[in-house]
Design a protein around this nucleic acid. Structure first.
Lengths: 129, 129
DNA sequence: ATTGAATTTATACTAAATCTAAATTCAAAT
DNA sequence: ATTTGAATTTAGATTTAGTATAAATTCAAT
């Protein structure tokens, strides 16, 4: 089915595209307001789901309370800095061999692996506490 | 500091130890009731956190709404069946080499990787829809 | 017995997200 | 141009998971 980018959905999509962090729904609403849009709460959630379902964006569940959203839809993972909360992309892919080992161990047909890493980012590494 | 296992904490711990699935807080409360305990809502959450903080159990954030809890505290991962929701352990560890590649790519000091897999479990694989 | 720190309880509250029903939009067909 | 109807948006209520708070209780150590 053809993708229907309404004004609201387009505006939400633009926010995600322009973001260099990984904004939550609340962040998106805040940025929409700053850009002069005042959409209903539910509309933003609906839009985020619509965009996610149509693979224009990705929903990230990093173990925090709120989902984050990412304009990069290629297969990749994320690392969160435990000091400052910053989220970065991890493009290095997990070895196919490992996936096969998991399939063998569990008997599952393995569809995908979501990997959330934790560590200390370069900036926090060098800064004093 | 010495671990203080009160009646409530011990009862919660026992539920997790005896569970062969990976119960949520709500599951734990339900099973406590079934066992004749009727602790305050908050006490169960406090107990789960206390047990988690003291490494007696692990909190799992599998991308679902609610956290699950696991009596196995060794380093391991989880796979969720997309058909029936069943959660299984994955003991096969991710190659150290991969972790190093991620550290190199991102510049982070990598502390840990949480891996949540999705697939179809053996039972669902063989059963007709 | 008395103190006091830790814990539990009951309840209120918060955050994130979903649901609902009415209002609005907008393309397609008269 | 108007009508129709499906999709969408809106506003607000509701749900779910979990946290915060203040009073009551427990319990070990004086």
């Amino acid at each position: 089915m053809k993708i229907n980018l309404t004004t609201q959905r387009k505006a939400v999509y633009d926010i995600i595209l322009q973001a260099h962090d990984h904004p939550t729904a609340a962040d998106v609403i805040e940025r929409l307001r700053a850009a002069g849009h005042n959409f209903a709460y539910g509309t933003v959630y609906n839009s985020l789901r619509y965009l996610t379902d149509n693979d224009l964006i990705r929903e990230l569940k990093l173990g925090e309370a709120a989902s984050r959203y990412d304009a990069r839809t290629e297969d990749h993972h994320h690392i969160v800095c435990i000091k400052c909360g910053r989220v970065d992309e991890v493009m290095t892919d997990v070895p196919q061999q490992w996936m096969e080992a998991v399939a063998e161990e569990t008997g599952y047909v393995v569809h995908e692996a979501t990997i959330n890493l934790e560590g200390v980012c370069p900036a926090c590494k060098t800064s004093k506490p």
